[in-house]
Design a binder for these strands. Sequence first.
DNA 1: ACAATTATCACATAAAACATGTTATATTGC
DNA 2: GCAATATAACATGTTTTATGTGATAATTGT
Lengths: 274, 274
Amino acid sequence: MPSAALWRAGKDNDGNNGGGAKMTPSERRREIVNLVMAERTVQLDQLAEHFGVSRMTIHRDLDLLEERGLLRKGRGGATAEGSLLFESNFHYRMQTEMPEKRALAKAAAALVEPGNVVMIDDSTTTLLLAEEFEAIEFITIITNSLAVCERLRGRPNVHLILTGGSYNDTFQGFYGLICEQTLGKLRADWAFLSASSVIGTSLYHQDQEVVRMKRALMSSAEHSVLLLTHSKFKARALNHFADLSEFEKVFIGADLDDAAAQRLRQADIAFELI
Amino acid sequence: MPSAALWRAGKDNDGNNGGGAKMTPSERRREIVNLVMAERTVQLDQLAEHFGVSRMTIHRDLDLLEERGLLRKGRGGATAEGSLLFESNFHYRMQTEMPEKRALAKAAAALVEPGNVVMIDDSTTTLLLAEEFEAIEFITIITNSLAVCERLRGRPNVHLILTGGSYNDTFQGFYGLICEQTLGKLRADWAFLSASSVIGTSLYHQDQEVVRMKRALMSSAEHSVLLLTHSKFKARALNHFADLSEFEKVFIGADLDDAAAQRLRQADIAFELI
DNA sequence: ACAATTATCACATAAAACATGTTATATTGC
DNA sequence: GCAATATAACATGTTTTATGTGATAATTGT
């Protein structure tokens, strides 16, 4: 019954109805997204009461969120868009586990020295890494991620190279033959990447195209570095793309549970908890 | 003495001082940019009087424009950032001659049929073309322009392919070997491009990298189409990149002066005034 | 088909963000 | 140090955005 806890968390602002703590519209929308994700389905009236706003406002919120592809609106409420697409939605992922991801990014960025050539994949964790690189004196960054590109473009200290390829809006990145061939022709000091899921010592991602891209990335870099939030150990995804042992360094969020850590040690995987 | 004319053009709103016609802040800023470009240098007080606003407002405008790299603020006024960089600044170019560019874009878009594969270069004119393509049922678009990419990404009706390459912030596009090689491997029905300058029947652009990219674009497309605003006939640029006769279709803004049109006809160039 | 529910529309109003001017307080250049 | 110019802080007015309301339309279940 995850339901009760979540709704309470929202309601404890105020004993009575939801009118208590002031919330910005976008905070409210975020919260709606969280609820939809947790519950799979929400009632419009329920939301209106919960947030202490009118039905019309919720209607408008849901319309907007639907347009962004975060949920599907139906009569009387909304549902998660099919949780796979949902889980992989870029904006949503971007907003979860930020502190953990930022810590990982800082640790990884410390490896890089001015003048290095660095490859970054299209994950949200590595996007934060890109932000860390803004501070480095001079650096060449190769990526297939539009988000990284938008973040870094125009900085005088970064030479930005995009792989190109077919654009995929779910991951906000470029994939396919073009991407892989371009990566094949380049050479980097470091490759930083992430994975959707870890099972045992195997890494997985839900999308084939992304898997191919990650393979190409790894084989074009001198050293590969893996960044993993602890939640990746609980997720599931279809396609195997690498083994933990292939990485020079593995950084994992400190919230990793002990059992999982123990298993990694037994498998002789060198990793650092951040 | 371009000075007098420009200031007058702004002033004729109102006989007395500049307080006459209401102007939005961004219109005012645009106008400031125009003035700085024409004069190379402007005085803060002069601007304040001209627009009928306080010094403080002009200060804030200049701060903002400086942040965008459109000018350099100094004591008492501002100067053009070095007019070459300036002239080729993307945002600035984007905002000039819009109606003419839009008309050209509409004419060009009419050539394309659903299912076509289309290449677009990085010019502002062709960016407007991208907007026209949003309406087409299904289309594959290949481009080296980040602006086109941002404009079209996420549309379900367009398959978007980016060439990749080294990012150049002045043109908001990707260039170099990667870009050219990728283009070499692709094949399109149409290539739409523009030029910086036309002299006789020769086309020029100020940047070598861009020239190479345009050549690659043209040689990978079945049909090449050129879009030119009339002002291109007055501009000058260094590098030759093609001849008008190489294009299947040439669309030119209707304001083209008669002498120039006559010369083109004499050279047996088929073109359409839009 | 009918009643009940839910959506949408159009408008009025409230709240937030933005733009501007004013005054007071630094800075700068000479 | 003086004059000119720049910044900062605040008050005010303006525009944009967010919200609620009531009327009207669409839809659902029976």
